Structure formats: C-alpha cells, structure tokens
Simulated scan of single mutants.
Amino acid sequence: MSAASGRGARAFIDACSLEVSAKAMPALIAEAARIAPGTMISIPYLASEDDDARLAAARTVRALGLQPMPHLSARRIGSQAALERFIARAVGEAGVEQCLLIAGDLATPAGPFADSASLIETGLLERAGIKVVAVGGHPEGHPLMSDAERWQVLERKCQSIQARGMAPKIITQFAFDADIVLAWLDALRARGIGHPVLVGVPGPASVTRLLRYAAMCGVGASAAMLARYGISIGRLLGTAGPDVFVDHLVGGLSETHGPVSPHFFPFGGIAPSLDWLAQYRQRSVAGTRL
C-alpha cells in the first residue's frame, strides 16, 4: 500500500457510520468507548420493533455522544398524525437531526404513504427541524424500476429535499462487488448529483450469514461477485471481512467522486466490526510508512 493510498484508506474508514437496530443497543453501549464521538448510527425500521423501541434507541445513541439517524418506512406508517408524532418525539427527546427514508416492504401501504417521496412532500421533516434527509441508492439496480426511472426518482427526491432547506444524503445497500459500486458512483456524479454517499459495507461475519442477508436484501451474490469479494463459493464454513472490497473501493475513488464514506452493516456483531475497523486503520497507518 502506498503512502497516498494508506492516507486515503484511513480517511475513508474514519468517516464510517454504523447500522444498529434497537435490540442491539446493549451491544452498542458495551462498545461505545471504541466509537468516535459524533459517529452516525443508523437505526433501521424493523417490523418486530415499535416506535417506542426505535425512540428509546435514538435516545440511547444520543446519550452515548453519537448521532442517531432513525429510518422512516413509508408504507408501514399508519397515518400522517403517527408520522408527525414520531418525528416530534425523535427531535424533542433524542435531538434527531437526520433520518433515512425508505419505501418499506409492504405490498399495500398501511396508511397514506406509498413511497419515500410522499414523506418528503408532507413538509413535516423541515418543520420539525430535521436538517439532513437520506434516501436509498441502488448500485445493483432496483427490482421495480428501470435504470432511467431509478435515476429520475433519485434526482427528484434530492431536489425536493434541497428545495425544502434540508441537505440530501444517499445511502446504498451493501454490496460484494466494488466495481459495480464505482461504476454507479461514476454515473451518479456524471448526472450532476454531488451529495454525500454512504456506501453499504457488510461487516465481518460468517459466509453463510452474509449469504443469508444478501438473499433477504436482494443483494447480488453470484459466484463471480463473491470471488471478487474474496469468498470462495466452495468454502462456506469460514468468516469473511470486507478487506478486498474496501481496498478495491478506496483504490478506485478519486476527487471526482466527491464525498464518499463507508456505512457498515455489522452482521457478525458490533464488536467484530469494530475490531476489523481498528485492524484496518493500523494497516493503513503502516502503509503510509512504506
């Protein structure tokens, strides 16, 4: 690793964020001393957790000196009043300043919101004091939209967020192929979309667990993709970390890609992900001394 690439890798890793569910808050508390103050903690909207659990998680994250980013799942929100109540409590009780909007996985919406754009259009976010609104990016494509539709929707959402005085941010699903992510970033910036991007990175976990989450989340996991990630499809009993993926991603990033940082999904647990981050930082520092 060259000195320049070592510095780039360290800066990339130091800007990381983490995805932590409400039920994993005890593990986050146990490891909080190892996490840089102000790190963004994304709190997913899980069907098995209610608003009280998500709000308690946001309060915990804030109390630890970290930045909570709760998800809002449009199709699972029963009414505009419920949305307004949740946002007001998140801002008032946990100092929430940013959130991630997703459509959600229900075929039929539980209330008036069919997609994340409809949440933006309520005006509730900016009136409550939300400053940053994240939306999803899809380097591997979207199952329900063509490529042209996918770009149009992303552009419209970012423009709507900005028009309402908030800052857009784009968070991608995790991936196994850095070339696909880099190509998507090239296309994103070529379209003039310069907002910060958080690239989903799977934390170290057993190979079988990684494959299970890939199937659940619709992430491409062909034998060729896994080989580029460093996983042999014939050896599924071990664990895998994102070293190859992150090295390739960092090596392909340039100033033209603008602000890009890693967003870790700690599938194998928070402590192993933090262990990996510490080891990667050490390797990056060593690389700058070569």
Rank of each mutant, 00 (worst) to 15 (best):
R85W: 14
G194M: 06
G194K: 09
S146C: 07
V199I: 14
Y213W: 05
G141N: 05
I35H: 06
S21N: 06
A214G: 14
L46G: 07
R54T: 02
V285F: 04
T208D: 12
R191M: 02
M25P: 05
L185I: 02
Q159T: 15
D243L: 02
W151Q: 12
G165F: 05
V153F: 06
D50N: 15
R235Y: 03
V91L: 08
G104V: 14
A240P: 01
P109E: 08
A94V: 04
L236E: 13
A223Q: 12
I87W: 08
P259K: 09
G241A: 04
G200H: 00
R164Q: 15
Q159F: 13
S48D: 09
Q162Y: 12
M25L: 14
G230T: 00
A110F: 07
E97D: 07
E149R: 12
R156F: 13
G203E: 01
F86H: 07
W276K: 01
E31A: 12
A82S: 12
L253P: 03
R76H: 13
L188G: 03
D186L: 08
G129E: 11
S5V: 05
R156S: 15
M225H: 03
L55S: 09
S118M: 15
V285K: 05
L144R: 12
L55M: 05
C99R: 05
K169L: 14
A134H: 13
G203R: 00
A94S: 07
D177K: 06
H195N: 09
Y45D: 15
Y45A: 15
R7Q: 12
A57R: 07
H257T: 08
T39Y: 06
R76W: 11
A224R: 01
A11E: 10
A15N: 13
G165S: 10
T288V: 10
T256A: 15
A187V: 05
D275Y: 04
D14W: 05
K157T: 11
R10H: 06
P204R: 01
R7D: 04
A32S: 13
G141A: 07
I102V: 08
K23H: 12
G220A: 04
H257V: 08
D105N: 07
V20L: 06
A175G: 01
E93D: 15
D105E: 14
H195P: 00
V20Y: 04
A278P: 09
Q173R: 04
A82C: 13
S206R: 14
